[in-house]
Amino acid sequence: MAYNRCIGTRYCANNCPVKVRRFNYFNYNAEVGVGYGVEAFPSAIEKANRKLQALVLNPEVTVRGRGVMEKCTYCVQRVEKAKIHARKEGRKIEDGDVITACQAACSTNAIDFGNISDEESVVAKKHADTRAYGMLEQLNIKPRTMYLARVRNPHPRLKTTQQIEDLATIEAHHGHGGHGEGDGHDEHAADAHGEAAHNDSAHSDEHHGEEQHAE
């Protein structure tokens, strides 16, 4: 989101199939003095300041006034910081350089964040997992955020024909991904195949904690 270029037509929010966007319908920052019109005078800003008991704005990202679209930035300030550090040290970003706020707060470690273009990173490996699926992938929206399907672990002999077919399709699909994983990973993947039943349709009903997000 380039907040300062946004005029707020909200077309992007309509078209977002996963509805992750939110809109600043009002000047939610009025209390900390991002005023418009007569409210923008310094005295008014000070007055607004007195009302507010806590400094709630993240000083590391652009201040958004009303009328602009809002979206998860994947903690761009943390990403930038990690990039700067990595650049200073002349290396690529590694796993653990960037810990997003949601990741830090997640008590069950369900979220991984990292460099998907680095094949060795945890996220890239998880993206390549047969359990990985994107939300509404069928719309060709190519999401960066992927989810890992619930592990059902049925006995192989109890699998339905449908499950076996689905699994075969998924494996074929992932095999063409061209990630060039190492042998070790393939073995791991093969193990997972035995257990993972990829079930998209059941996804929304499932308990969130059982899933892992790989972003």
Binding site: G8, R10, A13, N14, K19, R21, R22, F23, N24, Y25, F26, N27, Y36, G37, R66, G67
Partner: peptide, 16 residues
């Protein structure tokens, strides 16, 4: 314009 377009009934996901 003074208050913000939230004075309408538009709310996510009905942005229009």
């Amino acid at each position: 314009i003074y208050t913000g377009v939230g004075v309408w009934g538009n709310r996510a996901p009905i942005f229009w």
